[in-house]
Amino acid sequence: MCLRSVSRLSHLDKECIIMQREQYGVLVCLAGVLCNLVLFATKLAIALAVNSAAVFSDAFNNLSDAGASLALAAGFYVAGKEPDQRHPFGYGRVEYIAGLVVACLIIITGLGVGKFALERFLEPQPVDVNPFVVCGLACTIVAKFLMSLFYRQANKAIQSTAIQAGATDNFSDAVVTGVTLLSFTITGFTVFPVDAAIGVAVAGVILFAGIKTARDALGHLLGRMETPGIEQQIRGIVLATEGIEGMHGLTVHDYGPFRKYASAHIELAASMKFPEVHTAVEQAIDSVRQILRMDIVLLPEPLDATSENFLPPLAFRHQESSR
């Protein structure tokens, strides 16, 4: 399946965009699972061959990445389900739950790797390095860089924070493996357990990534403040509608990627008649949907509440079924 950039899919409705996005996300994550399992097996074989704590830590870092990609694939699959009677806003937040599961897996892996590397640091063991090992690790570095580029291109298509984090993680893995390879050069010139120290550092990187992922996922689940840019866009679109003089009380509700809903109070001239108010509200709602692909509820209020033409607050919401 070929998915173009989401910004170019203006002719498709929102649900179609979401379904294609989730399907593409599943394929990307499954590709990540396969690649990380191959890298895990390769690095584990190298670690056992040369007795390296750093490579061993790096190998299990790739295993945690494979588990994370599998969890994200499941999250994308469930998040792509259409809204139903029990979940009228869809299953988009499952993607955030999957991110939290991924974070837990990463943290557990980091703790295990750190324990192993620390034991090696306290009781150092010799590391046997040969040209084949160096070539093998160099190939894994290239593979991780290519995976990082692959994830970045995928993120341009589906605009997923999880995929973006995967791109950054793959790049970090390539750097970590490069540092591990460099440690082999230093090991022969010092009695300090450089290999084990690098293993501890890798564990620290894994833990940092896990904590950051958990913080981001929890932020979405608990309902964090939206970026000012989105609110400014909504205000600009609504206030550009003829007849709407002001706006306040804007709130954006996040039910998952591309499943955001907004609500706000708008101010109109008290002299406007009901049909004019209805037309202005519908026009503003349609504009927000077409430009931002977001549903919005608008509550009209008169600018002059003491006027004889006072309009009682009425909520207008554009329903897809009315089309």
Rank of each mutant, 00 (worst) to 15 (best):
E231V: 06
G243Y: 14
D254T: 14
V238M: 00
G246I: 05
R259V: 02
G249A: 08
K260R: 13
F258E: 00
L239Y: 09
T251I: 11
Q233P: 06
K260V: 08
Q233I: 03
G243T: 15
G229Q: 06
T251G: 05
G229N: 12
Y255T: 07
R259H: 01
H253C: 09
R235T: 07
L239P: 08
G256I: 00
E231R: 13
D254Q: 14
Q232N: 14
E245W: 07
P257V: 03
V252G: 05
Q232S: 15
P257H: 05
F258H: 01
G229P: 03
I244N: 02
L250E: 04
A240L: 15
Q232K: 12
T251P: 08
Q232G: 10
I234K: 07
L250R: 04
G236F: 09
H253K: 12
E242Q: 14
R235M: 04
I234D: 02
H253R: 12
V238L: 03
F258W: 13
L239A: 08
M247F: 04
G249T: 06
G236E: 11
G249H: 13
L239K: 10
A240I: 13
V238P: 01
Q232E: 14
E231H: 13
I230V: 15
H248C: 07
G246V: 08
P257G: 00
H253Y: 12
L239C: 11
I230Q: 09
K260W: 04
L239F: 07
G246M: 09
V238C: 01
G229R: 09
F258M: 03
I244K: 01
G249Y: 05
G236I: 03
G249R: 08
D254F: 15
V252H: 01
G229C: 14
G229F: 10
Y261R: 06
T251M: 12
L250W: 06
G256T: 00
R259A: 04
G256R: 00
T241E: 02
A240K: 15
I237P: 00
E242G: 07
L239H: 08
V252C: 13
G249N: 09
I234M: 06
I244C: 04
H248Y: 13
I244R: 00
L239N: 11
T241A: 03
M247D: 06
G256K: 00
H253P: 10
F258L: 08
E231P: 07
H253N: 12
E245R: 10
Q232M: 14
G236M: 11
I237A: 10
I237W: 03
L239M: 11
K260S: 05
K260M: 09
G246E: 08
E245G: 03
E242H: 07
I230M: 15
Q232P: 12
G236A: 10
G236Y: 06
K260T: 11
G256N: 00
L250V: 07
K260A: 12
L250N: 04
D254A: 13
G243R: 10
Y261I: 09
T251N: 09
T251Q: 10
L239D: 08
G246A: 07
G256M: 06
K260N: 08
F258A: 01
A240V: 11
R235P: 02
D254E: 14
G229E: 11
V238W: 01
G229L: 13
